[in-house]
Amino acid sequence: MKTKSLILAAAVTATFSVNAAARDYVSIVGSSTVYPFATVVAEQFGKTSEYKTPKIESTGSGGGLKLFCAGVGVQHPDITNSSRRIKKSEFDQCQANGVKDVVEVKVGYDGIAVANAKSAPRFELSRKDIFLALAKQVPGDKEGELIDNPYTTWKQVNASLPDIKIEVLGPPPTSGTRDAFAELAMEGGCKKIEWIAAMKKTDKKAYKAVCHTVREDGAYIEAGENDNLIVQKLVANPNALGVFGFSFLEENGDKVQGSLIDGKEPAFESIADGSYPVSRPLFFYVKKAHVDSVPGIRGYVAEFTSEKAWGDEGYLSDRGLIPMPKEERAKFAKDAADMSPLSM
Protein backbone atom coordinates (compact mmCIF):
# COMPACT_ATOMS: atom_id res chain seq x y z
CA MET A 1 0.00 0.00 0.00
CA LYS A 2 2.85 2.35 0.82
CA THR A 3 4.48 1.97 -2.60
CA LYS A 4 1.14 2.52 -4.28
CA SER A 5 0.57 5.82 -2.53
CA LEU A 6 4.16 6.76 -3.35
CA ILE A 7 3.52 6.13 -7.04
CA LEU A 8 0.36 8.20 -6.88
CA ALA A 9 2.13 11.03 -5.08
CA ALA A 10 4.93 10.95 -7.66
CA ALA A 11 2.41 11.04 -10.51
CA VAL A 12 0.63 14.02 -8.98
CA THR A 13 3.84 16.02 -8.41
CA ALA A 14 5.10 15.18 -11.88
CA THR A 15 1.81 16.40 -13.31
CA PHE A 16 2.11 19.76 -11.70
CA SER A 17 5.78 20.17 -12.46
CA VAL A 18 5.21 19.87 -16.23
CA ASN A 19 2.90 22.78 -15.95
CA ALA A 20 5.79 25.13 -15.44
CA ALA A 21 8.22 23.40 -17.79
CA ALA A 22 8.78 24.76 -21.30
CA ARG A 23 7.78 22.90 -24.41
CA ASP A 24 10.61 21.81 -26.72
CA TYR A 25 8.54 21.07 -29.83
CA VAL A 26 6.31 23.25 -32.00
CA SER A 27 2.59 22.62 -31.55
CA ILE A 28 0.43 23.13 -34.62
CA VAL A 29 -3.36 22.77 -35.02
CA GLY A 30 -5.90 23.60 -37.70
CA SER A 31 -7.33 22.83 -41.11
CA SER A 32 -7.50 19.30 -42.42
CA THR A 33 -6.87 20.68 -45.93
CA VAL A 34 -3.53 22.21 -44.98
CA TYR A 35 -2.66 19.16 -42.81
CA PRO A 36 -1.19 17.02 -45.65
CA PHE A 37 1.13 19.86 -46.64
CA ALA A 38 2.08 21.02 -43.15
CA THR A 39 2.94 17.47 -42.12
CA VAL A 40 5.37 17.07 -45.02
CA VAL A 41 7.10 20.32 -44.07
CA ALA A 42 7.20 19.30 -40.40
CA GLU A 43 8.77 15.96 -41.25
CA GLN A 44 11.41 17.53 -43.49
CA PHE A 45 12.14 20.11 -40.80
CA GLY A 46 12.42 17.47 -38.09
CA LYS A 47 14.82 15.35 -40.14
CA THR A 48 17.10 18.14 -41.28
CA SER A 49 17.36 20.29 -38.16
CA GLU A 50 18.45 19.71 -34.59
CA TYR A 51 14.91 20.47 -33.38
CA LYS A 52 12.17 17.96 -32.66
CA THR A 53 9.51 17.30 -35.29
CA PRO A 54 6.55 19.64 -34.78
CA LYS A 55 3.29 18.05 -33.63
CA ILE A 56 0.35 18.66 -35.94
CA GLU A 57 -3.30 18.15 -35.03
CA SER A 58 -6.02 18.20 -37.64
CA THR A 59 -8.84 20.10 -35.93
CA GLY A 60 -10.45 21.97 -38.83
CA SER A 61 -9.90 25.67 -39.54
CA GLY A 62 -12.46 27.01 -37.07
CA GLY A 63 -11.43 24.66 -34.26
CA GLY A 64 -7.79 25.49 -34.86
CA LEU A 65 -8.31 29.25 -34.64
CA LYS A 66 -10.34 28.80 -31.46
CA LEU A 67 -7.49 26.89 -29.79
CA PHE A 68 -4.92 29.30 -31.21
CA CYS A 69 -6.69 32.38 -29.91
CA ALA A 70 -7.26 30.91 -26.43
CA GLY A 71 -4.15 32.55 -25.02
CA VAL A 72 -0.39 32.79 -24.73
CA GLY A 73 1.59 30.07 -22.95
CA VAL A 74 3.00 26.60 -23.55
CA GLN A 75 -0.38 24.87 -23.26
CA HIS A 76 -1.66 26.83 -26.28
CA PRO A 77 -0.60 26.05 -29.86
CA ASP A 78 2.03 28.13 -31.66
CA ILE A 79 0.70 27.90 -35.20
CA THR A 80 -2.71 27.24 -36.70
CA ASN A 81 -3.43 26.20 -40.29
CA SER A 82 -6.49 27.53 -42.03
CA SER A 83 -8.18 26.93 -45.35
CA ARG A 84 -9.77 30.39 -45.17
CA ARG A 85 -8.68 33.80 -43.93
CA ILE A 86 -9.04 34.57 -40.21
CA LYS A 87 -12.37 36.28 -39.49
CA LYS A 88 -12.63 39.65 -37.79
CA SER A 89 -14.48 38.05 -34.89
CA GLU A 90 -11.72 35.46 -34.43
CA PHE A 91 -9.06 38.14 -34.61
CA ASP A 92 -10.88 40.13 -31.91
CA GLN A 93 -11.10 36.97 -29.81
CA CYS A 94 -7.31 36.61 -30.14
CA GLN A 95 -6.80 40.21 -29.02
CA ALA A 96 -9.13 39.78 -26.08
CA ASN A 97 -7.17 36.74 -24.88
CA GLY A 98 -3.81 38.49 -25.07
CA VAL A 99 -2.69 37.05 -28.40
CA LYS A 100 -1.71 40.44 -29.72
CA ASP A 101 0.61 39.81 -32.65
CA VAL A 102 -0.49 37.27 -35.21
CA VAL A 103 1.60 36.70 -38.34
CA GLU A 104 -0.34 35.67 -41.43
CA VAL A 105 1.35 33.49 -44.04
CA LYS A 106 -0.43 32.50 -47.22
CA VAL A 107 1.01 29.23 -48.52
CA GLY A 108 -0.71 28.57 -51.84
CA TYR A 109 -3.97 27.48 -53.38
CA ASP A 110 -6.16 24.41 -53.30
CA GLY A 111 -8.76 23.46 -55.89
CA ILE A 112 -12.02 21.67 -55.16
CA ALA A 113 -12.92 19.10 -57.79
CA VAL A 114 -16.35 17.82 -58.77
CA ALA A 115 -15.49 14.41 -60.17
CA ASN A 116 -17.06 11.19 -61.42
CA ALA A 117 -15.81 7.72 -62.33
CA LYS A 118 -13.61 7.26 -65.39
CA SER A 119 -16.08 4.72 -66.78
CA ALA A 120 -18.75 7.42 -67.25
CA PRO A 121 -18.62 10.38 -69.67
CA ARG A 122 -17.06 13.56 -68.30
CA PHE A 123 -19.44 16.23 -66.98
CA GLU A 124 -19.34 19.81 -68.22
CA LEU A 125 -20.96 21.95 -65.57
CA SER A 126 -21.40 25.62 -64.95
CA ARG A 127 -21.53 27.02 -61.43
CA LYS A 128 -25.16 27.85 -62.08
CA ASP A 129 -25.87 24.17 -62.84
CA ILE A 130 -24.23 23.23 -59.56
CA PHE A 131 -26.32 25.75 -57.66
CA LEU A 132 -29.58 24.69 -59.31
CA ALA A 133 -28.86 21.01 -58.78
CA LEU A 134 -27.82 21.24 -55.14
CA ALA A 135 -29.50 24.23 -53.50
CA LYS A 136 -32.34 23.62 -51.10
CA GLN A 137 -34.45 26.32 -52.72
CA VAL A 138 -34.23 27.48 -56.32
CA PRO A 139 -35.93 30.34 -58.20
CA GLY A 140 -39.39 29.50 -59.48
CA ASP A 141 -41.13 30.72 -62.63
CA LYS A 142 -41.88 34.19 -61.31
CA GLU A 143 -39.12 36.60 -60.36
CA GLY A 144 -38.53 36.78 -56.63
CA GLU A 145 -40.19 33.43 -55.97
CA LEU A 146 -38.32 30.56 -54.30
CA ILE A 147 -39.53 26.99 -54.49
CA ASP A 148 -38.19 23.77 -52.99
CA ASN A 149 -35.71 22.23 -55.39
CA PRO A 150 -37.81 20.20 -57.87
CA TYR A 151 -34.95 18.88 -60.02
CA THR A 152 -34.26 15.16 -59.92
CA THR A 153 -32.08 14.67 -63.02
CA TRP A 154 -29.25 16.69 -64.49
CA LYS A 155 -31.17 17.07 -67.76
CA GLN A 156 -33.88 19.04 -65.97
CA VAL A 157 -31.25 21.46 -64.69
CA ASN A 158 -29.65 22.01 -68.07
CA ALA A 159 -30.78 20.33 -71.31
CA SER A 160 -27.19 19.73 -72.40
CA LEU A 161 -26.46 17.52 -69.38
CA PRO A 162 -27.11 13.75 -69.37
CA ASP A 163 -30.43 12.32 -68.26
CA ILE A 164 -29.27 10.73 -65.01
CA LYS A 165 -30.30 11.17 -61.42
CA ILE A 166 -28.66 13.96 -59.42
CA GLU A 167 -26.48 12.19 -56.88
CA VAL A 168 -23.57 14.09 -55.33
CA LEU A 169 -21.30 12.75 -52.59
CA GLY A 170 -19.63 15.45 -50.60
CA PRO A 171 -18.22 16.51 -47.23
CA PRO A 172 -20.45 17.31 -44.21
CA PRO A 173 -21.02 20.88 -42.95
CA THR A 174 -18.19 20.61 -40.40
CA SER A 175 -15.64 20.48 -43.21
CA GLY A 176 -13.74 23.47 -44.56
CA THR A 177 -14.03 21.94 -48.03
CA ARG A 178 -17.81 22.15 -47.73
CA ASP A 179 -17.62 25.83 -46.69
CA ALA A 180 -15.40 26.63 -49.65
CA PHE A 181 -17.59 24.61 -52.01
CA ALA A 182 -20.70 26.48 -50.86
CA GLU A 183 -18.98 29.82 -51.12
CA LEU A 184 -17.18 29.37 -54.43
CA ALA A 185 -19.26 26.94 -56.46
CA MET A 186 -22.80 27.42 -55.16
CA GLU A 187 -22.68 31.12 -54.41
CA GLY A 188 -20.80 31.64 -57.66
CA GLY A 189 -23.72 30.10 -59.54
CA CYS A 190 -26.31 31.74 -57.34
CA LYS A 191 -24.94 35.19 -58.19
CA LYS A 192 -25.66 34.54 -61.86
CA ILE A 193 -29.37 34.91 -61.11
CA GLU A 194 -29.84 38.66 -61.12
CA TRP A 195 -32.57 39.18 -58.58
CA ILE A 196 -30.76 36.97 -56.05
CA ALA A 197 -27.54 38.88 -56.66
CA ALA A 198 -29.45 42.11 -56.01
CA MET A 199 -30.57 40.65 -52.67
CA LYS A 200 -26.98 40.71 -51.45
CA LYS A 201 -27.21 44.46 -50.96
CA THR A 202 -30.63 44.54 -49.39
CA ASP A 203 -30.70 41.43 -47.21
CA LYS A 204 -27.32 39.78 -46.86
CA LYS A 205 -28.51 37.10 -44.46
CA ALA A 206 -31.28 35.88 -46.73
CA TYR A 207 -28.91 35.99 -49.69
CA LYS A 208 -26.44 33.74 -47.87
CA ALA A 209 -29.19 31.39 -46.76
CA VAL A 210 -30.41 30.97 -50.33
CA CYS A 211 -26.96 30.56 -51.85
CA HIS A 212 -25.26 28.35 -49.23
CA THR A 213 -28.02 25.98 -48.12
CA VAL A 214 -27.61 22.53 -49.61
CA ARG A 215 -30.70 20.40 -50.27
CA GLU A 216 -31.52 17.69 -47.77
CA ASP A 217 -33.75 15.39 -49.80
CA GLY A 218 -31.05 12.82 -50.58
CA ALA A 219 -29.59 14.26 -53.78
CA TYR A 220 -26.58 15.53 -51.84
CA ILE A 221 -25.14 12.72 -49.76
CA GLU A 222 -22.87 13.58 -46.88
CA ALA A 223 -20.08 11.06 -47.24
CA GLY A 224 -18.01 11.93 -44.20
CA GLU A 225 -14.66 13.66 -44.06
CA ASN A 226 -12.86 10.75 -45.66
CA ASP A 227 -12.16 11.67 -49.28
CA ASN A 228 -10.71 8.24 -50.07
CA LEU A 229 -14.12 6.77 -49.30
CA ILE A 230 -15.80 9.16 -51.75
CA VAL A 231 -13.37 8.05 -54.48
CA GLN A 232 -14.21 4.39 -53.80
CA LYS A 233 -17.94 5.10 -53.90
CA LEU A 234 -17.60 6.95 -57.21
CA VAL A 235 -15.85 3.99 -58.79
CA ALA A 236 -18.67 1.73 -57.62
CA ASN A 237 -21.40 4.09 -58.83
CA PRO A 238 -20.64 5.70 -62.23
CA ASN A 239 -23.78 7.88 -62.03
CA ALA A 240 -22.65 9.75 -58.94
CA LEU A 241 -20.51 12.87 -58.68
CA GLY A 242 -18.16 13.55 -55.78
CA VAL A 243 -16.79 16.74 -54.21
CA PHE A 244 -13.25 16.65 -52.78
CA GLY A 245 -9.88 18.36 -52.72
CA PHE A 246 -7.62 18.53 -55.77
CA SER A 247 -4.87 16.40 -54.19
CA PHE A 248 -7.23 13.40 -54.09
CA LEU A 249 -8.11 13.92 -57.75
CA GLU A 250 -4.46 14.00 -58.68
CA GLU A 251 -3.65 10.90 -56.65
CA ASN A 252 -6.54 8.92 -58.22
CA GLY A 253 -6.31 10.14 -61.83
CA ASP A 254 -6.72 6.55 -63.08
CA LYS A 255 -10.07 6.08 -61.34
CA VAL A 256 -11.89 9.41 -61.40
CA GLN A 257 -12.00 12.47 -63.64
CA GLY A 258 -12.65 16.07 -62.70
CA SER A 259 -15.66 17.71 -64.34
CA LEU A 260 -15.14 20.89 -66.33
CA ILE A 261 -16.52 23.84 -64.41
CA ASP A 262 -17.36 26.90 -66.51
CA GLY A 263 -15.31 25.24 -69.25
CA LYS A 264 -12.17 24.82 -67.13
CA GLU A 265 -10.66 21.53 -66.14
CA PRO A 266 -9.36 21.19 -62.57
CA ALA A 267 -5.64 21.02 -63.33
CA PHE A 268 -2.46 22.35 -61.82
CA GLU A 269 -2.13 25.17 -64.39
CA SER A 270 -5.74 26.35 -64.36
CA ILE A 271 -5.83 26.54 -60.55
CA ALA A 272 -2.45 28.30 -60.38
CA ASP A 273 -3.46 31.02 -62.86
CA GLY A 274 -6.83 31.44 -61.17
CA SER A 275 -8.99 30.52 -64.17
CA TYR A 276 -10.51 27.44 -62.48
CA PRO A 277 -13.35 29.00 -60.48
CA VAL A 278 -13.50 26.69 -57.46
CA SER A 279 -10.15 27.30 -55.79
CA ARG A 280 -9.20 28.97 -52.53
CA PRO A 281 -6.10 30.24 -50.75
CA LEU A 282 -4.58 28.38 -47.79
CA PHE A 283 -2.97 30.08 -44.79
CA PHE A 284 -1.19 29.53 -41.54
CA TYR A 285 -1.00 31.91 -38.60
CA VAL A 286 1.94 32.23 -36.19
CA LYS A 287 1.72 33.47 -32.61
CA LYS A 288 4.52 36.02 -32.39
CA ALA A 289 4.68 35.90 -28.61
CA HIS A 290 5.85 32.26 -28.83
CA VAL A 291 8.52 32.70 -31.46
CA ASP A 292 11.34 33.29 -29.01
CA SER A 293 10.14 30.99 -26.23
CA VAL A 294 9.40 27.78 -28.16
CA PRO A 295 12.42 26.50 -30.10
CA GLY A 296 11.98 25.70 -33.77
CA ILE A 297 9.13 28.02 -34.81
CA ARG A 298 11.38 30.24 -36.90
CA GLY A 299 13.02 27.23 -38.52
CA TYR A 300 9.69 25.58 -39.35
CA VAL A 301 8.30 28.79 -40.88
CA ALA A 302 11.53 29.25 -42.86
CA GLU A 303 11.26 25.67 -44.15
CA PHE A 304 7.63 26.17 -45.18
CA THR A 305 8.37 29.45 -46.97
CA SER A 306 11.51 28.20 -48.73
CA GLU A 307 11.49 27.75 -52.51
CA LYS A 308 12.36 24.07 -52.15
CA ALA A 309 9.06 23.59 -50.29
CA TRP A 310 6.44 25.93 -51.75
CA GLY A 311 8.19 26.88 -55.00
CA ASP A 312 7.00 25.92 -58.48
CA GLU A 313 9.18 22.80 -58.38
CA GLY A 314 9.05 22.35 -54.61
CA TYR A 315 8.09 19.19 -52.77
CA LEU A 316 4.70 20.62 -51.76
CA SER A 317 3.65 20.95 -55.38
CA ASP A 318 4.32 17.19 -55.74
CA ARG A 319 1.69 16.72 -53.02
CA GLY A 320 -0.93 18.79 -54.83
CA LEU A 321 -0.43 22.27 -53.35
CA ILE A 322 -0.80 24.92 -56.05
CA PRO A 323 1.99 27.49 -55.61
CA MET A 324 1.39 31.24 -55.53
CA PRO A 325 2.95 33.46 -58.21
CA LYS A 326 6.60 34.32 -57.60
CA GLU A 327 6.05 37.92 -56.40
CA GLU A 328 3.39 36.84 -53.92
CA ARG A 329 5.72 34.14 -52.57
CA ALA A 330 8.49 36.67 -52.14
CA LYS A 331 6.17 39.02 -50.26
CA PHE A 332 4.87 36.40 -47.85
CA ALA A 333 8.32 34.88 -47.34
CA LYS A 334 9.59 38.31 -46.33
CA ASP A 335 6.63 38.94 -44.01
CA ALA A 336 7.23 35.55 -42.41
CA ALA A 337 10.95 36.16 -41.96
CA ASP A 338 10.31 39.59 -40.39
CA MET A 339 7.35 38.24 -38.39
CA SER A 340 5.31 41.30 -39.34
CA PRO A 341 2.02 41.10 -37.49
CA LEU A 342 -1.40 41.22 -39.11
CA SER A 343 -3.69 44.15 -38.49
CA MET A 344 -7.44 44.03 -39.11
Binding site: Y25, V29, A38, T39, K52, T53, I56, E57
Partner: peptide, 9 residues
Protein backbone atom coordinates in the same frame (compact mmCIF):
# COMPACT_ATOMS: atom_id res chain seq x y z
CA UNK B 1 -7.44 15.78 -25.95
CA UNK B 2 -5.29 16.20 -29.02
CA UNK B 3 -3.95 12.68 -29.52
CA UNK B 4 -5.19 12.66 -33.10
CA UNK B 5 -2.05 14.29 -34.43
CA UNK B 6 0.82 13.83 -36.83
CA UNK B 7 3.72 12.71 -34.69
CA UNK B 8 6.97 11.50 -36.23
CA UNK B 9 9.24 11.10 -33.22
Amino acid sequence: IGMVAFIVD
